[in-house]
Computed example of a mutant assay.
Amino acid sequence: MDPVQLLVLALVQGITEFLPISSSAHLILVPVITGWEDQGLAFDIAVHLGTLLAVVGYFRARVARLIVAGIRAPFTRERDVDGRLAWLLVLGTIPVGLAGLLFKDVVETTLRGPLVIAAASIGFGLLLWWSDRGGGGTRDEDSLNWRDALFIGVFQAIALIPGTSRSGITMTAALLLRLDRVAAARFSFLLSIPVIVLSGLLQVYELVVAGDPVAWGVLVTGTLCAALAAWACIHLFLRFIERLGMAPFVMYRIALGLVLILVFAF
C-alpha cells in the first residue's frame, strides 16, 4: 500500500465513522473509484482500532464511570445512572450482534454493490431528515429506558447494509425518541464502542485463521491517522450539531446516492 492510499483510507475511516454518512460505504467506494486494490482485512482492523481509540479517549471519563458502575450494578440495589446506562449500551448492542452473525455472508457479498449503497444512502438519509425536522427533542441519554435502548439497537442492526451509516441510523432512532441532537450523538458514539470491539475481535479471528502476513508499519500509521481524524470529527460534530442540524449530511447523502446511480446504473 502506497502512502497516498494509506492516508486517504485512514482519513476516510476516521472522518466518516462518526458522521451520519456511512464509513463502510466510503471504504467500499474509494477503491472502486480509484482503482486501488482492496486494502485488506488487516488494514480495516487497524483503522477501526483508530476510531475506537478516538471515541474511548474522547469520552474517557464517562467510559471509566460506565465500566465501573456497570460491573457494580448487578451486586447493588442502589440506582445509579451510569450503571443503568452501561447495561443499556449492552442491550442496544445485542440486535446488531445477532444480525451480524446471521447475515454476515449476505452483507459481505450481495449488499456491497454501489446501487445498494446509493439506495441506502438516499433512503436512510431522508429518514434522518424526517427525524430531525423538528430540531430534536429535549431528552438526554440518561433518560433512556430498556425499551428505548432496544429500539435504537434494532435500528443499529439495519446499519449492516452498506450506505446506511451506523451513526446515522442510531441518531435517527434517538431523535425519533425525542432526544436532543447532542444527546443523540453522544449515545450513538458510546454505543459504537461495544460494536467496534466485537467486530474487531471477529476480524482479528479471521485474520489469524487466514494467516496472512502483516505490515506492522502500515497498520500503526493507519491506526494513528484514523484516530486523529476521528477525534477531531467527534469534537467538531458535538460542537456544531445543535446549530447545523442534520440537513448538511442529508444533502450530502442524497448527492452521493445520485452520483452513484448515474455512474453505475447507466
Rank of each mutant, 00 (worst) to 15 (best):
A119Y: 04
D105G: 07
M171H: 09
A173G: 06
D105F: 07
G136A: 12
L126T: 00
S165I: 02
L115M: 09
A173K: 07
F151C: 02
Q156G: 02
L101A: 14
R147V: 09
F155E: 01
L128P: 02
L144S: 06
G100I: 08
R112S: 11
T172K: 04
V106R: 09
G135K: 07
T110S: 13
Q156N: 03
L144C: 05
L115Y: 03
T138Q: 15
R112K: 13
V116D: 02
S131C: 14
G136R: 11
L126F: 12
L160A: 10
A119G: 11
R139Q: 09
I152S: 04
L150I: 04
P162Y: 13
G136M: 11
L101N: 08
I117T: 00
G135Q: 12
F124G: 01
G168F: 12
I161G: 01
D148Y: 11
S167F: 13
W146K: 09
T172A: 06
G137P: 11
S143A: 14
I117L: 12
Q156C: 02
T164F: 10
S131I: 10
L111R: 01
A173M: 12
R166D: 02
G136Y: 14
A118H: 08
G137H: 14
A118C: 06
R139P: 12
Q156D: 03
F124C: 00
T110V: 13
F103Y: 14
V116E: 03
A159V: 02
D132F: 14
R139S: 09
L128S: 06
I158T: 08
K104D: 15
D132M: 06
L102S: 09
W146E: 14
L111E: 01
G136F: 14
S167V: 07
G137S: 10
A159R: 00
G134R: 15
W129T: 08
V106G: 04
G168T: 00
P114M: 06
G136H: 11
L144I: 03
I122L: 04
R139T: 11
W130V: 13
G113Y: 13
G136L: 11
L127E: 02
A149Y: 11
D148L: 03
E108D: 12
E108M: 12
T170Q: 08
I158H: 05
G100V: 10
V116W: 08
F151W: 15
R166H: 10
R112N: 10
D148N: 08
S167L: 09
L128D: 04
R112M: 07
L126C: 08
D132Y: 13
S131K: 13
G123K: 00
R139M: 06
A118Q: 08
L126N: 04
G163Y: 11
A149P: 05
I161Y: 04
V116L: 09
I117G: 01
G113S: 14
G163D: 05
L150D: 05
L101H: 10
L150H: 03
S131L: 14
D148W: 08
R147I: 04
I169M: 11
N145P: 00
W146C: 06
G125P: 04
E141F: 14
F124K: 00
G136D: 10
W146D: 12
A159N: 05
F155V: 00
T110F: 14
L128H: 05
K104L: 09
